[in-house]
Amino acid sequence: MTHAHDGHEHEHGHDGHGHGGHAHPHPRQPDIEDAPLTWHMALTEAMAELIVQKGLCTPADIHRTLEKIDAASPAAGSRLVARAWLDPDFRARLLQDVNAAAGELGIDAGGIPIRAVADTPDRHNVIVCTLCSCYPRFLLGGSPDWYKSKAYRARVVREPRAVLAEFGLHLPDGMQIEVHDSTAELRYLVVPVRPSGTEGWSEDQLAAIVTRDCLIGTALPVVA
């Protein structure tokens, strides 16, 4: 098998990561052309070029997909939870079939089945993908780096209470924690318990407190 990677091109450091902590009053925003082209950036350009050349997709497909990636956010997931808090029938349908329930609200949850896991007063749910990075991105947008990190994937299944505490979520000893390991065929979405103090709130108000981390299970909705 021919590999595009020869294992000797690691001099480029970590593209797109931190900038060494220099504080500039006006952060410099270099043009894309000013950044050095790393091996992997060149490979990406080459692959994008080739799949168009080979007729596997069009430049418009690439552009549209990039727009979709930029537009994705956890708002869809937040809205599903807010609606479930307000409408018990919808909640039942959401727990039955997330993708169909999302469709009712005009939300495309993607082609891979998503299962809603509902918190109760004595059981908390949290999601992970120990094997890689499966994530309900149609409902939550792109996953945070930590979700893909080895530390989170390795530890949350063994010591969820300690990991959640690192996120600032301190659960009482009596609270059972269920960790759901996502796969390429099934993803999960956490439905937290509606907090007290939200009586009479609108769907928009409720959705605003359901953050991305609430939908992963590493935070709980907070009533300000």
Binding site: D15, G16, H17, G18, I32, H40, M41, T44, E45, A48, I62, T65, L66, I69, D70, G142, P144, D145, W146, S149, A151, Y152, R155, V163, E166, F167
Partner: peptide, 17 residues
């Protein structure tokens, strides 16, 4: 768990696309 946020670079989004 390192929870520092990371804005995706344009080339990373292209990989995703």
């Amino acid at each position: 768990v390192d929870r520092s946020p990371h804005d995706y670079a344009p080339w990373e989004k292209k990989v995703d696309a």
